[in-house]
C-alpha cells in the first residue's frame, strides 16, 4: 500500500496533517519549540487574545478530574497589541506555516478590534473567534449561549476580516446546531468545536470549591464522546468546515473526530500531560490509517451517516 495521504484543507489552506494544538494549551509555541520541531504541526491555534492585557482569574485555577481537568485561567494574555507586535511575529520565526489567531472579547466592538488587528498579521491564516470561554462572567459566556449574539459577533467580525473566520462554539447550550447555523447564516467560513464544558470540583475536606472562581472549563479525554456527538450533529447541520476538538489524545481519536465530520482536529489538554502529544499523534497517523485501510484521510471526513 502507498503511504496514506494525511493532508487536509481548511478554507483553501492546505494542512500537511489535521493536527493542530488547541488555543490555551500551547501558548505561542515557544515552550514546545524547545522540545520538537513544531513545523510538523498542521497549524497552531494560539492563546486566546483580548483587547487589553489580562492577568486572568485568581488562584487556584486548576482542578484535576477523572480523565481530565478543570481550568479557570480566565484568558490570561498580554493583550492584542503585544500579540500582534511581538508574539505572532516571534512565532513566525519558529513556525513557518499559517497559524490560527484565537480572539475573545467582552463586547462586539472588542471582537471587531481584535479581528482587525490579527487580520493584518502575515502569518495568521484563520481567525478563530472564541464566543465560548466559560471563565469570564462579563461577556464570553453570554455570546456563546445565544444564537442571536453569535450572529451579531459573526456579522461584525466578517465585515472587517479578509481572512477566513471560524466561530468557536461553546458546548454549554441546549442545541449546538442552532448556534452553528446562526454563525453560518452570517457568513462564518468555518466552526471550531467544542470549547470546555462548564464544571466544578469540591474539596470535600475543606468543604469549598477547589477552584477560586468556583467553576471552570472541563476538558480532556472525558469529554471526547460529547465532542464527537456535537461535531457529528453540527457537521450534518451546516455546509462550512468544522475543526473538531475535545479530549483528542491519539491518532485514533483524530480519525474518530474526522469520521464525525471534522476537517481538522485540535488537541488541547493532551499537550499539558504529555508535551510531545501532538508529535506522537502525527507520527502515529499514517500507521493508524493503514490499519483502518484509509488511503486518503480527507476521504473519511463525515463518512459516518
Amino acid at each position: 500500500m502507498v503511504k496514506p495521504d494525511i493532508s487536509t484543507e481548511l478554507s483553501g489552506i492546505r494542512l500537511s496533517n489535521p493536527v493542530i494544538p488547541a488555543s490555551g494549551t500551547f501558548g505561542f509555541g515557544k515552550e514546545f519549540a524547545e522540545l520538537y520541531d513544531i513545523n510538523i504541526l498542521g497549524s497552531i491555534s494560539v492563546k486566546g487574545t483580548t483587547r487589553e492585557p489580562r492577568f486572568g482569574n485568581p488562584q487556584p485555577r486548576i482542578a484535576e478530574c477523572p480523565m481530565g481537568l478543570i481550568n479557570s485561567v480566565g484568558l490570561q494574555n498580554p493583550g492584542i497589541d503585544e500579540v500582534v507586535k511581538k508574539e505572532l511575529p516571534e512565532l513566525s520565526e519558529i513556525y513557518h506555516k499559517p497559524v490560527i489567531a484565537n480572539i475573545s472579547g467582552f463586547s462586539v466592538d472588542e471582537y471587531v478590534e481584535c479581528a482587525e488587528a490579527v487580520d493584518k498579521v502575515e502569518n495568521v491564516g484563520i481567525i478563530e473567534v472564541n464566543v465560548s470561554c466559560p471563565n469570564v462572567h462579563a461577556g464570553g459566556m453570554a455570546f456563546g449561549t445565544s444564537a442571536e449574539n453569535i450572529a451579531k459577533v459573526t456579522k461584525a467580525v466578517k465585515a472587517v476580516a479578509k481572512k477566513p473566520v471560524y466561530i468557536k462554539l461553546s458546548p454549554n447550550v441546549t442545541d449546538i446546531t442552532e448556534m452553528a447555523k446562526a454563525a453560518e447564516s452570517e457568513g462564518a467560513d468555518g466552526l471550531s468545536l467544542i470549547n470546555t464544558l462548564m464544571g466544578m470540583r469540591i474539596d470535600v475536606m475543606r468543604r469549598r470549591p477547589v477552584i477560586a472562581n468556583k467553576m471552570g472549563g472541563f476538558s480532556g479525554p472525558a469529554i471526547l464522546p460529547v465532542a464527537v456527538r456535537m461535531v457529528y450533529q453540527v457537521s450534518k447541520a451546516v455546509k462550512i468546515p468544522v475543526i473538531g476538538m475535545g479530549g483528542v489524545s491519539s491518532a485514533r481519536d483524530v480519525i474518530e473526530m474526522m469520521m464525525a465530520g471534522a476537517s481538522a482536529v485540535q488537541v488541547g489538554a493532551a499537550n499539558l500531560t504529555d508535551p510531545w502529544a501532538c508529535k506522537k499523534i502525527i507520527e502515529e497517523l499514517p500507521g493508524e490509517c493503514e490499519k483502518l485501510h484509509i488511503e486518503r484521510l480527507s476521504d473519511i471526513i463525515g463518512c459516518v451517516e
Binding site: 494549551t25 500551547f26 515552550e31 485555577r61 489538554a269 499539558l272 508535551p275
Partner: peptide, 17 residues
C-alpha cells in the same frame, strides 16, 4: 507552590503577579 496543569509553562494555570 501552585496548582499546576502542565508544569512547563504552557497553560498559565499557575500564574502569579
Amino acid at each position: 507552590e501552585a496548582r499546576m496543569a502542565c508544569g512547563f509553562g504552557a497553560c498559565m494555570g499557575c500564574s502569579c503577579k
